[in-house]
Design a protein around this nucleic acid. Sequence first.
DNA 1: CAGCCGATCATATCATCGTATGATGTCGCT
DNA 2: AGCGACATCATACGATGATATGATCGGCTG
Lengths: 212, 212
Amino acid sequence: MTNDDMSDQAVVHIIDDDKPLREALENLFLSVSIEAATYASVQDFLSRVPENAAGCLVLDIRLPGINGLDFQGKLAEHGITLPVILMSGHGDIPMTVRGMKAGAVDFLPKPFRDQDMLDAVAHAFARNKLERAVADDAARVVTRYATLSPREREVMTLVTAGRLNKQVAGDLNLSEITVKIHRGAAMRKMGARSLPELVRMEEAIRRSSIPA
Amino acid sequence: MTNDDMSDQAVVHIIDDDKPLREALENLFLSVSIEAATYASVQDFLSRVPENAAGCLVLDIRLPGINGLDFQGKLAEHGITLPVILMSGHGDIPMTVRGMKAGAVDFLPKPFRDQDMLDAVAHAFARNKLERAVADDAARVVTRYATLSPREREVMTLVTAGRLNKQVAGDLNLSEITVKIHRGAAMRKMGARSLPELVRMEEAIRRSSIPA
DNA sequence: CAGCCGATCATATCATCGTATGATGTCGCT
DNA sequence: AGCGACATCATACGATGATATGATCGGCTG
């Protein structure tokens, strides 16, 4: 959640059990000054991948022990949101469709042209950059929200829903004065300088907790 | 934009130049009580499809005169947001990937099992229903927004941005009284019963006009 | 031209909001 | 026992917002 290391350099994470292929890809990326990291297996990747990785993933849809589709589920569990580029040696169309529907940003049949892979990575990087920007904003808001007391959260919810202080007081069986205090504390802790700003923060929290 | 005819029944729109295939698909859908409409060409579809169609589209990626990919672009121009299910007789993987990236919800290689098509349509219907619900809400808001005078829109923008009446007055070189009048008119015309509600409407407008 | 709409401003009243000051009570942890 | 966080409520004052009444002005339209 926190972001101590500011400069997350974008990295292509390559997962494949074929060592020559891994090295070939790594060299391809290095030749255009893109940092690459290689992993021989999914386990290897999950144990070594940094928390706040930026960049994208490149892997074969057919991996030892797990297929590329279930893997995309695993990623979510580990909080990894890297865009995925799937490769396939002898993939058929149904497999391609499942891969794309599972969220892959691209799907390259082997053999592919180097330029196609580079294009795919460029797009994946761009997407990841956007997603990170959005996620970082939301994370900052959620972090602040975590510092609110239970009462303050209740009041914030009702206030951003459009209830007046007086109505909130009725809803929670409180005096209006108490509501004002909680409301003020929520504004201060969230860093909101206006009610509309607080409303947008509430929205950001809803959006980033519902899909989770 | 308007929605006079409430009961838009979901319809599968089938576009294919092969008449036997059209009829076979039509019969398949009718056998499970799904309404189907057939079109021999893209032009035929674009001239006959109703404004507010609900349901989904089924078409071959290779059509006479236009390919299925450019067609997805055409749909946007005509304001059609129906989910697209692509079929392909001899499609390869790159074509599949392009189709999926262009927004197709599914891609069926011919020949396909009837059940696969029905599943795809069921998913497409479900997606369309969700999209329509969201779009209808946004459309209602946009319709109301259209009734605002230019000044009222300016004031609404600044107010939902968190500016106080006094500040808005300064921004627009107006008296605070005038701002209050425009603000009140905006609330009334938009049907917002609270400032947070107005803020969410403003967000809905932003979201539905930026991607356009 | 008469009427309507948009835009402007004033005065006035009332409700609501924001915040400070001060006080009481519970709980948990040291 | 004491400290701190949380929660509660009161009084009070000033700022802000909502609304009504009334008025002026320009432009468009029947």
